Each structure stands twice: as C-alpha cells, then as structure tokens.
Deep mutational scan, measured.
Amino acid sequence: SEEELEEFAKEVLRRGITIIVNGIRITEVEIFVKVLREILEKR
C-alpha cells in the first residue's frame, strides 16, 4: 500500500544504510527512488 511505501521511505531515510548490490555500493534511498520511479512509470 502507499502507506507502507511511505513508512519504508521514512525508515530508509532514518537509517541511511549502504548495502552492496552486485558488488556496487548503493544506498537504500537510491534503490527506493529507483523502485518508486518504476512503479510510477507502470501506472
């Protein structure tokens, strides 16, 4: 749901943790923004 997305976004921003994806360091915020864009483009 959109509320869950908002909560996830807030949690990500609070933690600001960097994770490893395919050997490249990407912040969770960047991943969230990318996923959010993909979701919005599909609408």
Results as ranks from 00 to 15, higher is better:
Glu2Asp: 14
Arg15Lys: 11
Glu28His: 06
Leu13Tyr: 05
Glu28Phe: 06
Thr18Val: 15
Lys34Arg: 10
Glu3Asn: 12
Ile17Cys: 02
Arg15Glu: 06
Val21Glu: 01
Glu2Gly: 09
Lys10Asp: 03
Glu28Pro: 04
Ile17Thr: 09
Glu28Asn: 12
Leu5Pro: 01
Ile26His: 04
Val35Arg: 02
Glu41Asp: 11
Arg15Phe: 08
Val12Tyr: 08
Ile17Met: 11
Leu40Asn: 02
Ser1Lys: 09
Ile17Trp: 15
Arg14Phe: 07
Leu40Ile: 08
Gly16Asp: 06
Val29Arg: 02
Arg43Ile: 14
Ile19Cys: 00
Glu3Arg: 13
Arg43Phe: 15
Ser1Arg: 10
Arg14Glu: 09
Thr18Cys: 04
Gly16Glu: 06
Glu11Thr: 06
Val33Asn: 01
Glu4Gln: 11
Leu13Val: 02
Gly23Asn: 08
Ile24Cys: 06
Glu2Ser: 13
Glu4Arg: 11
Ile19Ala: 01
Arg14Ser: 13
Glu11Arg: 11
Ile31Gln: 15
Val12Arg: 01
Arg14Asp: 09
Glu6Leu: 15
Lys42Ala: 13
Gly23Ala: 11
Glu11Asp: 11
Thr18Glu: 13
Ile26Tyr: 04
Glu11Cys: 10
Thr18Ala: 13
Ile20Val: 09
Val33Thr: 02
Asn22Arg: 05
Glu30Lys: 10
Leu5Arg: 01
Glu6Thr: 14
Glu3Ile: 10
Lys10Arg: 15
Glu7Leu: 12
Glu28Val: 06
Leu36His: 00
Lys42Met: 12
Ile19Leu: 08
Leu36Cys: 00
Glu7Lys: 12
Ala9Met: 12
Arg43Val: 12
Lys42Ile: 11
Glu11Ala: 09
Glu3Leu: 14
Glu30Asp: 11
Glu6Cys: 14
Glu6Val: 15
Phe8Asp: 01
Glu3Lys: 14
Glu7Val: 08
Ile19Tyr: 01
Val21Arg: 02
Arg14Val: 04
Arg37Asn: 05
Arg14Tyr: 04
Ile17Asn: 06
Gly23Thr: 05
Arg15Gln: 11
Glu11Asn: 07
Ile20Gln: 05
Val35Ala: 05
Leu5Val: 04
Glu28Trp: 08
Val33Gln: 00
Glu3Gln: 13
Glu3His: 12
Arg25Met: 10
Val29Asn: 00
Ala9Leu: 12
Glu2Ala: 14
Glu2Pro: 13
Lys42Gln: 14
Phe8Gly: 02
Ile31Trp: 10
Arg15Thr: 11
Val35Thr: 05
Ser1Pro: 05
Ile31Val: 13
Ile31His: 14
Thr27Ser: 11
Lys34Val: 05
Ile20Phe: 09
Leu13His: 02
Thr18Leu: 14
Glu41Trp: 06
Glu7Ser: 09
Arg14Asn: 13
Leu40Asp: 00
Ile19Phe: 05
Glu3Asp: 11
Phe32Pro: 00
Glu3Ser: 13
Leu13Ile: 12
Leu36Phe: 05
Glu6Ile: 15
Val35Glu: 01
Lys42Phe: 14
Arg43Gln: 12
Ser1Cys: 06
Leu40Trp: 14
Leu36Tyr: 02
Arg43Tyr: 15
Gly16Met: 13
Glu7Asn: 12
Asn22Gly: 09
Leu5Ala: 01
Arg25Thr: 13
Glu6Asn: 09
Thr27Pro: 08
Phe8His: 03
Lys10Ser: 04
Val21Ile: 15
Lys34Pro: 00
Ile26Gln: 00
Asn22Thr: 06
Ser1Tyr: 14
Lys10Phe: 09
Phe32Glu: 00
Val33Met: 11
Ile26Glu: 03
Val35Asn: 02
Ile19Thr: 01
Arg14Ile: 06
Ile20Pro: 00
Lys34Thr: 07
Ile26Pro: 05
Val21His: 09
